[in-house]
Amino acid sequence: MSTASPDLDYDSAARLLELCSAHGCSVAEIALRREAAQTGKDEASLLARMKDHYTVMREAVRGGLAIRAASPSGLSGGDAARLHAYAAGASPLLGPALARTAAYGFAVLELNAQFGRIVATPTAGSAGIVPACLMTLEDTRALDADRAARALFTAAGIGLVIGRRAPFAGAQGGCQAEVGSASAMAAAAIVEAEGGTPAQACDAAAFALMNTLGMVCDPIGGYVEVPCVSRNGMFAVHSFLAATMALAGTRCVVPLDDVVIAMRDIGRRMPRALKETAGGGLATTPTGLRYPPQPVTGKPSAAKQQ
């Protein structure tokens, strides 16, 4: 660890904000410098790698919008295209950006369900949210790939705060850990892309995560499709709302660090049946039971309580 400068590391939003203040820079800049210090790689190559990730994200959105066929399970496919077409129609509700943001979130998850190539952000089940938000900023705010790469470092910077104290896996923390984290990361990325302060970015993340608390991971048949596909579209919009609130100067009473602790606590208390086991919730409704999980050994499996 010869080149690491430990003073750039942080395990909380409070410490992250101190670093931003001390260095007079953004969350993205601290996350980038931290990565450079810890890996010994230069910032330009790290930004280039993040830009490559953004390229994969854009391709995933484009690929998903082109899907017309159903997934192997039959549970998803074609809705991203429907939303995209609606957004291009004469009078889409709340303007074209709303339906388009949702369409982008749907698109990545529809592609994911069809064994497409995506970037886990932070997980595959939540991989549509950050790309949907950045693609919408491309449409509406002329965000270019360089600024998108920096916004992804904002998202990573917030993700690191969450990941230090709580899990990202739905199997451990429920959907709040996946979609909640992605939404918090996206909200902060939007804020910094819009020129907001690090404090506003953390408030946006706190709002986004706080309002996903308790969300369980109960997808039908264990497939990453229902409700995951629609949830990625809807929570991309949620991220924009959280960012809007922070940019308007609304402060989140519970700071991000406390929201993360709450998320971890709720995840620990959440029953296993509601943590990616297909053992409860939507998965065990009459509809859900028509799509039983497929165990690897091929034995017939009731969606069992675990």
């Binding site: 990730h53 369900a113 069809q114 995506i118 970037v119 595959a124 998202a155 990573a156």
Partner: peptide, 9 residues
């Protein structure tokens, strides 16, 4: 956090 690039799901 942003990665890996992967085949779904």
């Amino acid at each position: 956090v942003i990665g890996p690039v992967m085949i779904g799901p």
